[in-house]
């Protein structure tokens, strides 16, 4: 497997996991229930994404080191920072929704969790497409 293919597969896996989490959160809020689709789907997709990264790192160390070069590590660091601030911002937003009695707390809990997962993954996917 060459660098370009592994890089594209990484982008696809991050997009898939990020969009799965984002869509789950949107559906949870739309239907006001914590399990709009089977609850394990975001977790399993996220775990498979992590497993893919682990396997390629172990079995394709040379290609993987190029895919995760200085620029990629920098972009991932920025994505995690973005995810942190999204997670922090979600607390007052969820509090406001609870106060306004717009959603039940289990719904908000599910949406906050999946949005927190989606933020760094989608941010990285966006950063990864720059200058490609």
């Amino acid at each position: 497997m060459n660098f370009a293919l592994l890089s594209r597969l990484r982008l696809a896996s991050f997009l898939l996991a990020g969009l799965t989490c984002l869509i789950y959160a949107i559906l949870a809020l739309l239907f006001d229930r914590p399990d709009p689709v089977p609850f394990w789907i975001p977790g399993v997709v996220g775990a498979l994404t992590g497993l893919f990264g682990l396997i390629t790192g172990v079995f394709l160390p040379r290609v993987s080191s190029v895919v995760w070069d200085e620029l990629s590590r920098n972009e991932w660091s920025r994505s995690v920072q973005f995810g942190y601030w999204v997670a922090v911002a979600l607390y007052p937003i969820a509090g406001a929704f609870l106060y306004a009695d717009l959603f039940a707390w289990p719904t908000l809990f599910a949406a906050m969790g999946t949005l927190t997962g989606a933020a760094p993954l989608l941010c990285f996917a966006w950063l990864d497409t720059r200058g490609a």
């Binding site: 890089s7 190029v66 070069d69 200085e70 620029l71 720059r130 200058g131 490609a132």
Partner: peptide, 14 residues
């Protein structure tokens, strides 16, 4: 030992 994109983003001052 880096990606082509890294070189491209350096050249473009990103």
């Amino acid at each position: 030992g880096v990606s082509r994109k890294t070189i491209n983003t350096i050249e473009n001052r990103i």
